[in-house]
Simulated assay, not measured.
Amino acid sequence: MISSAFAPEAARQPDTAPAGLQVLEFICRGQRFAVPLASVRRAVLSARPVPLPGAADIVLGVLDVGGETVTVLDFARRACGRPTAITPTQQFLIVESNGFPCALVVDSIVGPGTAPAAAAWPAAAGSAGFVDGALHLPDGLCLVIEPARFLFDHERAQLAQALAGAAGERH
Rank of each mutant, 00 (worst) to 15 (best):
M1T: 04
F6D: 08
P8W: 11
P8G: 10
E9K: 12
A11C: 12
Q13C: 06
Q13S: 11
D15I: 07
A17N: 13
A19Q: 15
G20S: 14
L21Y: 04
Q22N: 01
E25P: 05
R29L: 07
R29A: 09
R29D: 03
Q31S: 08
Q31D: 01
R32C: 02
V35T: 06
V35L: 00
P36W: 01
P36C: 05
S39E: 07
S39H: 12
L45N: 13
S46V: 15
L52I: 10
A56P: 15
D57A: 06
V59S: 04
V59P: 02
L60P: 03
G61P: 02
G61A: 13
L63F: 09
G67K: 06
E68D: 07
T69H: 01
V72G: 10
D74G: 09
D74T: 13
R78Q: 15
R78D: 14
C80G: 02
T84V: 05
A85C: 11
A85I: 15
T89Q: 14
Q90V: 00
F92K: 08
I94M: 10
E96S: 00
S97A: 15
N98L: 06
G99E: 02
P101D: 11
A103E: 03
L104H: 04
D107R: 04
D107K: 02
I109G: 04
V110Q: 04
G113D: 07
A115S: 11
A117Q: 15
A117L: 15
A117C: 09
A123E: 14
A125N: 03
A125V: 12
A128T: 00
V131K: 00
D132S: 07
G133A: 12
A134L: 13
A134C: 12
L141E: 09
C142H: 02
L143E: 11
I145L: 00
E146L: 12
E146F: 01
P147K: 04
P147E: 05
L151I: 00
D153Y: 02
R156C: 03
R156G: 01
R156T: 03
A157I: 00
Q158C: 07
Q158H: 08
L159K: 12
A160Q: 13
A160K: 12
A164Y: 11
G165W: 11
A166S: 10
A167C: 08
A167K: 05
A167I: 08
E169K: 07
H171A: 10
